[in-house]
């Protein structure tokens, strides 16, 4: 049983996507526990299941098998309403594709979570503008996505994830579309919030970004192949980079579908 500071606890999580006849095993027996106040980077090759894992942590998706707990509560025991409220108040999600509303001004996008948190309209606008200023977009508040650059859209999405002051921030490639300087600014903001207690989980392809985390999780073929303290954590002991990519990574091979199928059928 996880202790009280455990935010997320996953045991043997699998996720199977059914694509017509074939089944895709996106997560294959992932066990992971995230403590309050952690700063985690998730790395791994494309298609290794990072986003899938993130969706499950963010209560957007449910695992096919395995036990998922948030603050000691099983997610499959929560109602849709409770899940929605948790997503709204506890979790900030920065999507890999920014997922902005096509025709809404930036501040309206940022205001959305506040609308569902029943914050009064006037107060919501103020907070949305404030958060936009935090990501350096104060002057772009009235611009629509089509009038913003990719990096600016990314920052609108980040502001939206932060506006409800979540305790857990999940960011799928948050610096992917940003130049080095803006990327650095965004990370600095994340890290400042982390100092203030925000739990941070970032998916990244960028070594430099990963190295700043206290813990680095590497995935391949739907499984965690390494979970180690990051460079930032080990640097103090003069240790090496925690990323344990083998020099010659084997080519991703198709998962043995039949094996999984059996398991899925048994389960349900």
């Amino acid at each position: 049983m996880a202790d009280s500071s455990t935010l997320i606890d996953m045991q043997n999580i699998t996720k199977v996507y059914q694509m017509g006849e074939t089944k895709v095993l996106a997560l294959n027996g992932v066990s992971l526990s995230i403590e309050e106040g952690e700063y985690i980077a998730i790395v791994g090759t494309s298609g290794s299941g990072k986003s899938t894992l993130m969706n499950i942590i963010g209560l957007l998706d449910s695992p096919t098998e395995g036990v998922f707990q948030i603050r000691g509560q099983r997610a499959d025991g929560l109602t849709g309403r409770q899940l929605a409220d948790l997503r709204n108040r506890e979790i900030g999600f920065v999507f890999q594709q920014f997922n902005l509303l096509a025709r809404a001004a930036a501040w309206r996008q940022v205001e959305l979570p506040l609308f569902y948190a029943n914050v009064a309209r006037s107060a919501a606008r103020g907070r949305a503008l404030e958060t936009l200023a935090q990501v350096g977009l104060a002057e772009r508040a009235d611009h629509k996505p089509e009038e913003l650059s990719g990096g600016q859209q990314q920052r609108v999405a980040i502001a939206r994830a932060l506006v409800n002051r979540p305790s857990l921030l999940l960011a799928d490639e948050p610096t992917g579309a940003l130049d080095t300087r803006t990327g650095e600014e965004v990370l600095a903001l994340f890290e400042k919030l982390h100092q203030e207690g925000l739990t941070l989980v970032i998916i990244t392809h960028d070594q430099e970004v990963a190295e700043r985390a206290r813990r680095v999780i590497t995935m391949r073929d739907g499984a965690i192949i390494s979970d180690s303290p990051g460079a930032a954590a080990t640097a103090a002991y003069g240790g090496s980079n925690g990323l344990s990519e083998p020099a010659l990574a084997p080519l991703p091979r198709p998962v043995a579908i039949e094996q999984i199928q059996e398991r899925v059928y048994e389960a349900g």
């Binding site: 957007l60 309403r81 929605a84 997503r87 709204n88 108040r89 997922n99 509303l101 959305l112 569902y116």
Partner: peptide
């Protein structure tokens, strides 16, 4: 559809 998905992801209830 996408907008609805987003709204739900951001905490919209079914009733919303």
């Amino acid at each position: 559809t996408k907008e609805i998905g987003l709204r739900k992801a951001l905490g919209a209830h079914t009733s919303d």
